[in-house]
Write a protein that binds this DNA or RNA. Structure first.
Lengths: 136, 136
DNA sequence: TTTTATGCAAACCGTTTGCAGGACA
DNA sequence: TGTCCTGCAAACGGTTTGCATAAAA
């Protein structure tokens, strides 16, 4: 994906900060939150502010560049993978992994039961990951 | 359920505030947040503080009297129905309804895929409810 | 040159906490 | 009486906002 082009096509300016944030999340499997993205950028982009990270993520979410996750913790996390899937978080090490779930069927089921026109589906699990199970 | 007995059995004192909060959430289908519970109690219990509502809900969640929900909004909501089920929120009127979902199968599926020992499952949908669809 | 973005600091909002006084057991 | 609970106000943490300056188009 050419993020510069996507920004331009959506009427947003292409700035070094936006490119940097994109670089930090592209194929980032850790599902970072804003603070983590900020910290990751510190060494290379020391003048970047946390507010800019938030503003950039809001734009990225709006134009479909990232998916916003809530994994039963305080801060939001971001996923470069915008295809519908669920997440599981380890309650011990806080690692977040992807989980394949048939969201389409679930959404159809929810619509049938309630008469809602369904917009979004959010599925998260918590538990103990393989590594942390070994250590217990 | 005799909430006084449940409190006592778990080592908590029985106070008018705790009984009042229970009264406010028992069979309350609106999935209220702390603020809503607080406001509902104001007329009858004007001296009740919001902090006490929070502290009480924390205890209720711990002893299994309520379920805590996150429906892709800022505040947590509480459900007197503690059996495993999902929720759907209307993005227009913010009403929240219950949805039956086979969480057991989903959890087993997530465990298979990731090797996690699954603790909890959280499923929420958003969309437009029947009434709000009519009005559009 | 016009418009939009940045970085800073302050505000915000839901929630938690410390503590002195009060209620339960 | 001893312990726990309450209500208040202040603190907290993640996020948003207002604004003056700076950079993109």
């Amino acid at each position: 994906m050419d993020i510069a082009e996507v920004l331009r096509n959506n009427g947003y300016k292409v700035t070094p900060q936006r490119l940097a944030v994109y670089e930090a999340i592209d194929h980032n499997m850790t599902h970072p939150n804003a603070e983590a993205i900020y910290k990751k950028l510190q060494p290379k982009y020391p003048s970047m502010s946390l507010a800019t990270v938030y503003k950039t993520m809001e734009i990225f979410a709006k134009i479909g560049v990232v998916q916003v996750l809530q994994c039963e913790e305080d801060a939001h996390r971001y996923d470069y993978n915008t295809s519908p899937h669920a997440h599981i978080r380890c309650v011990r090490c806080n690692r977040v992994m992807d989980v394949n779930v048939d969201q389409k069927t679930l959404a159809a089921n929810a619509a049938d039961q309630t008469g809602f026109k369904v917009d979004s589906v959010n599925i998260s699990f918590t538990g103990l990951c393989k590594d942390c199970q070994k250590q217990e």
